[in-house]
Amino acid sequence: MQEVRITADASGYNPNVLFVQKGVPTKLIVEGKTITSCNNEIVIPSMNKRQKLSKGETVIEFTPGNEDINYSCWMGMIRGLIKVVDNLDTISQSDISAAQNAAPSSNAAGCCGGGAASGTSAQEPTIYGTNISQVPTERLIKKATVSGDIQSLTIKGVGADFEPLMVVLNKGINAKIDFDLSKMDSPDGEYTLLDVSYNKVTSFKITNSKGEFEKLFQNPGTYLILNKDQLVLFFQVVDDVNNADLEQLRREYIY
């Protein structure tokens, strides 16, 4: 058995790069120091794992295979990497430095309302700034517009961030979602829609920064959108989009 440890606090998950040996049963121990609305659930897509965190230690057990393992907070804005190697004894400082440089970028400040406002060190702001608690709800969460038997919305983004972060949809009405990601960094590729149990529902592609997604959601629930094993946004399907309480959704899912 091998053990690796990270801490969860207002700045994110630290360290954000870990090394484990292939084929050896592993305990990932997450020490919750400061639990926020963003870091309170760790997501490991390749393992179909979602684990709620609390103060103290939370243990996640797995046996690494051949592939490196990405993990993130449930919003996908705090990210980390577990490097899988054949032999831990052969890891050099240059290997560690290279892995840290290649690790997925994170922005705990944009996700959790960190930065100077919460006493943590300043971080690179996203389109939402360094304190998401100051961002109007209508930027973070948008309702689809229903017209007859179609509901529609356009999702945009800048840099690494999507706008909005949550789309509210009406059950039983065909959803048509357009993506205009011309101002994002490298948005092209395959995107996967999962339910909250991490079962794949469908997938779609973004090409030349444009894409379109259509689906009829029959039941209320939360659906996750992943790209390259990172959670990038999600859909909330409700009984009646006109009566959806965006402030309640914000308190429950964002901050």
Rank of each mutant, 00 (worst) to 15 (best):
V4K: 08
I6T: 07
S11V: 13
G12F: 00
Y13T: 05
N14K: 02
N16W: 07
N16F: 14
V20L: 12
Q21N: 10
V24L: 12
I29H: 00
K33I: 13
T34I: 11
V43E: 04
M47G: 15
N48A: 11
E57M: 12
I60H: 01
T63V: 09
N70S: 09
S72L: 01
G76Q: 06
I78V: 12
I82G: 15
N87G: 08
S92R: 07
S94E: 15
A103S: 09
G113F: 06
G119Q: 00
S121R: 02
A122D: 08
Q123P: 06
T126K: 12
G129W: 01
T130D: 15
Q134V: 14
K143Y: 07
K143C: 10
D149I: 13
I150S: 05
I155R: 02
I155Q: 01
G157L: 03
P164S: 08
L165R: 06
V167F: 03
Y191C: 01
L193V: 06
L193I: 12
S197R: 14
S197I: 06
N199Q: 07
V201K: 09
T202Q: 06
T207F: 09
L216A: 01
I225V: 00
D229W: 05
Q230S: 13
V232A: 03
L233E: 04
A244H: 06
D245L: 11
L249T: 04
E252N: 07
